[in-house]
């Protein structure tokens, strides 16, 4: 079930409750996962498979894909609206007038 492109759901840790995509399977316990950060708020990191729950959806990305490729795959798959993921727009920090 946990394979490259699989969309999972983080269950533990600060990013619990957010979706993420498996980018590379490191070994039987660890997996490289990315949101990417600007899409689902999960940064590219190594995660123990105990801390994620697989869903039935899958994105077609190749192994070790970069965050841009994963973001494009998200757009193409139109799963963003289906899973109800709100993509936070980048709010410009107000530059302090010096």
């Amino acid at each position: 079930m946990i394979e490259v492109g699989r969309i999972c759901y983080k269950v533990a840790g600060r990013e619990a409750g957010r979706y993420c995509v498996v980018v590379k399977v490191i070994n039987s316990n660890f997996v490289l996962v990315t949101g990417p950060k600007n899409v689902t708020g999960v940064r590219r990191r190594k995660v123990n498979i105990m801390h994620i729950e697989p869903t039935k959806h899958k994105l077609d990305i190749k192994e070790n894909a970069s965050d841009e490729e994963v973001a494009k795959a998200w757009q193409k798959s139109k799963l963003l609206s289906k899973l109800g993921i709100k993509v936070e727009k980048k709010t410009k920090k107000k530059q302090k007038e010096v």
């Binding site: 533990a12 619990a16 729950e53």
Partner: peptide, 22 residues
Amino acid sequence: PERPFGGYLCSECMRDYFRKVI
């Protein structure tokens, strides 16, 4: 703690909650 439901649910109950949601 800096977790969803931090200070309200323990980590196990928080995981069960999210597992039910998914």
